[in-house]
Design a protein around this nucleic acid. Structure first.
Lengths: 217, 217
DNA sequence: AGGAATTGTTTGAGCGTTCATTCAAACTTT
DNA sequence: AAAGTTTGAATGAACGCTCAAACAATTCCT
């Protein structure tokens, strides 16, 4: 009964430590990248600023991500992952009624986790280079599709006719994107709370027959 | 009767030729900057790419703009100037009726002159660095304020109550910003024409009592 | 179990490149 | 001749990436 071939699962801790360490380092570096983008902007984010932020050497960033571009791509993927986790969690927490699910999904866009000033700085920094970095566009399209499908699905429960539901979903999605721009460009004039309020007002207008969105007034 | 102090206006053409030349060069360099941003992105736009695009030497760009940053700032101001000229011209061309003026102002946002794929690439490239370049934010706030005032003014003619008018103006402004984002991120799924159509649909919903916006169904 | 060998990780100096800016000299217009 | 304009080589700083060497964890061998 000697030891097995360190293969699948039986062994005690054959390489687990190293794998764990690698994942931890990658997370640490991605986190440092996001911090650096917030602090210095994407244009002035270098391997040096990331390494300094992470408390590591420049070399280790290249070791785990091959290239600076790989690190940036991982960072963009990460914020989209967080964004998706945010609205999915909001949907899970919402009740079964379509009105509640719609509000949950849209409200999620105005949680500081995804639209704080720092978060917006990162979003727009990456979008600014979307046209010159093919991968960014693919990531954006991938994540956006899932959210829009969810949104349209809910709208279909609220209005009759697929065309009208799609139209409504497009309006609401557009509103969210547009309000993010306000939050980003003019943060002193618009906060997430204002966004939620404006959203409710718009919903009350667009779906007047649904009492759930009726304005106080 | 010796020569005067080259001062105000009396002299025949004391420096006029040179001034004209300087303005022409500045325009040429700003144009080349915008082209370079479209072609290479803002991050890879250098004095060399701008000079090559303009058919001039690098030195002349510095001569007229002192610094690369000065050149970029001038380019941003230029696209905002064009944007403003676009919606102001649309307003001037529209009739006196508030419905027509509203549609003219909003439709102007979907003219290729300001929202073509190339134009959007420039907009988002600059916005991406807004948080790290104070001047960009000032320029954006300056131009945005004038447009929003115009929009709100028209909305006040259409709905009673300043609060409701302001709310409507915010919704519509947000819609325009949001749709630009769709045009930019997913140009294969959304074109300016779709934006105009969606806008009309939204207007018909938000202002149902105004026949001018009634949907054809 | 204990020490050597192997494999994985981290460092930071160094390389080649690119970039913004400078500037003396050449060229043009007044 | 004077003033204005344009050039492009030179400068120095910053950057992404490489790599040999150092360090650490794990495995192998007895």
């Amino acid at each position: 009964m000697s030891e097995m071939r360190t293969g699948q699962s039986g062994s005690q801790r054959p390489r687990k430590e190293r794998k764990t360490n690698a994942d931890m380092r990658r997370r640490q570096l991605v986190e440092a990248t996001l911090s650096s983008i917030v602090r210095h902007g994407l244009a002035r984010t270098t391997l040096a600023t990331v390494a300094r932020e992470a408390g590591l050497s420049q070399g280790v960033a290249v070791f785990y991500f091959e290239t600076k571009q790989g690190l940036l791509t991982a960072a963009l993927r990460e914020i989209y992952r967080r964004y998706e986790a945010n609205w999915m969690a909001a949907l899970d927490a919402a009740g079964p009624r379509a009105e509640d699910r719609l509000l949950a999904l849209l409200d999620a866009d105005f949680r500081p986790e995804v639209c704080s000033r720092d978060a917006l700085a990162v979003w727009y920094a990456f979008w600014g280079e979307l046209k010159t970095t093919e991968t960014y566009a693919e990531i954006a399209a991938d994540f956006d599709a899932r959210r829009f499908d969810a949104l349209r699905g809910i709208c279909r429960e609220l209005v009759s006719g697929d065309a009208d539901a799609g139209e409504l979903a497009e309006w609401l999605d557009t509103f969210c994107d547009g309000y993010w721009q306000k939050l980003y460009l003019f943060p002193s004039a618009h906060g997430p709370e204002d966004g939620r309020r404006a959203l409710r007002g718009l919903l009350a207008r667009l779906l007047p027959d649904r009492g759930a969105f009726a304005a106080r007034d």
